[in-house]
Amino acid sequence: MYEFDYRRAASVEDAVAALRASGEAKILAGGMTLLPTCKMRLARPSQLVDLGRLQGLKGIEIGDADVTIRAMTRHADVAASAELRRALPALAGLAAGIGDAQVRNRGTIGGSVANNDPAADYPSACLGLAATIVTDRREIAADDFFQGLFQTALAEDEIIVAIRFPRPVAAAYEKFKNPASRYATVGVFVARSASGVRVAVTGASENGVFRATAIEAALQGSFTPDAAATIRVPSKGLASDFHGSADYRAHLIPVLAARAVQTCLSQA
């Protein structure tokens, strides 16, 4: 790692001030992406601003209409929450499948969403559930938040404080995981709510998480595994690498969507 200053944020406002004071400062959440990136010398922050001691950024609140998870809540805490397993089991299950146990003991939802890795799990839940990203200054709809490969609507000095997920009628996440990293080769999040069906896909696109609108339309007509499975997804714009070709990923999307629909139906 290159040298950097370490600053333990005293508050969210303090962290924002630190980002404003230096354009090369970076927020440190769980560090499960940022620290390996620094170790590879792929990033050279002047300062790491650690949110780790801000207790106000930790916790899960279950409301009648929605679930709010504060930004510094670890994947392990999301996975282990008995209340969340009842209220939104798809989200708890998603968290239980991120990385590995040691990563889940450090990594945070806010860090994952802010990073917007094209193969990360949480962005698909945010987009699939039409979540709201709550920052230190505003609220951003998931549809507006994810803007491409590692790109988000966050300003340079803006910090996520929580994610608010509307509670669906049913939801499920199916991941075809890379067996080494457990990142999604393809991951599909299906959510059915009073306002309709949403299908969000991670891992597949060169531009990060996206909605599979053709599958959404088919499921709107008939919420059955077959309705999803018969849709052919074009491979144009999908990622092609040694984990899988674009055609292979295109094939996986309706397959995983159908499995997720089956899981949704079994919840009813």
Binding site: G31, L48, D50, G52, Q102, N105, R106
Partner: peptide, 19 residues
Amino acid sequence: CTVLFNGDAVKSCTILAVQ
């Protein structure tokens, strides 16, 4: 490099001493 940190297994190569 796994150690227990505040009761949880973590990879000690991916946590700063200051953290």
